[in-house]
Simulated assay, not measured.
Amino acid sequence: MTELLNTLYVQTPGTSLHLDGNAIRVYHPDQTGRTLIPLARIDHLVLFTGTTITDDLLLRCADDTRSVSWLTGAGRFRARVTGPTLGNPLLRQAQHRAADSPDRQLSIARSMIAGKIHNSRQVLLRAARDTAGTRQDILRQTAETLARRLHLLANALSVDEAMGAEGIAARDYFTVLPHLVPDPAWTRGGRTKRPPADPLNCLLSFLYGMLRVAVHGALEQIGLDPYCGYLHALRPGKPALALDLMEEFRPLLADRLAYTIANRRELDPATDFEALPTGAVRLTDTARRTVLNAWQRSRQRDWPHATLERNIPAALLPLVQARLLARHLRDDLDSYRPWTVN
């Protein structure tokens, strides 16, 4: 169990959460003593597989608009409870109208993908500055390739073409994973998702799960519909807009943290990961706690924001971008401007 930045992470199997007055009582059969956490300190609970929450506490959280999310041990999102839907219906109406307009949908989708590709280039260029020789040359060459993908994206005439440009850029980017984390114990090379097949891909998937929870919550706080997006296909139960808005954050907030953890040897790929019969690789409970602490520390870091021309803490970036998207949908901004750094 880790409480950081008003989010309570509960990951130890067998742990149960109970309502005790105006506090959360944490119980585990193997632990002695009584742990109480005032509800006033917590605005979001994240529960991993094997942990439970009682109905009375869940309903209290819903009444207080305190969100509760469930994730698998690998960090994959499973469910979320937030209570009554909040927000301005006029904003959601504008959001849905934009989704029905091919021109506006394409404009927003291109901006989000451009932000992702731009920030991916920054990850590669920063990594190149910290190395030399062939590895440096490959990272810089790939960064230049991504610059050309931005030109391809600018010429996209449909969302499908924009997604095609994004897919090509993602393939180029993940091809150099072994040069971003040179220890061969971490990765077999390339991105594997379902399931993640090596420790680095496992770490990336877990951090994407954390990022998805943060972005989903930011959209709901602003009053946007997380399920009506512009880039990912609309399907029942799929938070398309949350997945859309994640894209520009992935390289710098998730990928870079994963590479840092691996290269600084904060985890051991041989002992901090478990290989499952399905071929999936997952974090051990101890390693998951280490990653959660690293994730929360990273959320306190300030990042430059090109549009606002000021530094913004990482934890607030999804909220800032959700607000900028809302302003565009209300026609207060002529376009959606993704978060980028130079």
Rank of each mutant, 00 (worst) to 15 (best):
M1T: 11
T2G: 12
E3H: 14
N6H: 11
V10M: 09
T12P: 06
G14R: 04
S16G: 13
L19P: 07
Y27F: 11
P38I: 13
L39Q: 05
A40F: 08
T51W: 11
T52W: 10
R60L: 15
R60N: 12
R66L: 15
S67F: 12
G73P: 11
G73E: 10
G73R: 09
A74L: 12
F77H: 14
F77K: 12
T82D: 12
G83L: 06
G83E: 08
T85P: 13
T85S: 15
G87Q: 02
P89R: 12
P89E: 15
L91V: 07
Q95Y: 02
R97S: 10
A98Q: 01
A99M: 04
S107K: 10
I108V: 14
K116W: 06
S120F: 02
R121C: 00
A127S: 04
R129T: 14
D130S: 11
T131K: 10
G133P: 13
Q136N: 08
Q136R: 15
L139E: 03
L139Y: 04
R148G: 10
L152I: 10
M163K: 15
G164I: 10
A170W: 00
R171E: 05
V176G: 00
H179P: 03
P184R: 03
P184V: 06
G190S: 02
G190N: 03
G190E: 03
G190H: 03
G190V: 02
K193V: 15
A197S: 06
D198C: 03
N201Y: 07
F206Q: 04
F206A: 11
L207R: 01
G209E: 07
M210Y: 07
R212L: 13
R212V: 08
A214C: 09
G217F: 02
I222W: 01
D225N: 11
C228G: 01
H232L: 09
L234S: 14
P239K: 09
P239S: 13
A240Q: 07
A240Y: 05
D244N: 03
E248P: 03
R250G: 01
P251C: 03
D255K: 04
Y259C: 01
A262T: 02
A262C: 10
R265L: 11
A270V: 06
T278A: 14
G279L: 08
L283G: 04
T286R: 14
R289F: 11
R289I: 08
L292K: 04
W295Q: 01
W303Q: 09
N311C: 12
N311L: 14
I312H: 08
A314L: 14
L317C: 04
L317A: 00
A322H: 00
R323T: 06
L324N: 04
R327N: 08
L329I: 09
D331W: 02
D332L: 07
Y336W: 05
Y336I: 05
P338E: 03
N342I: 05
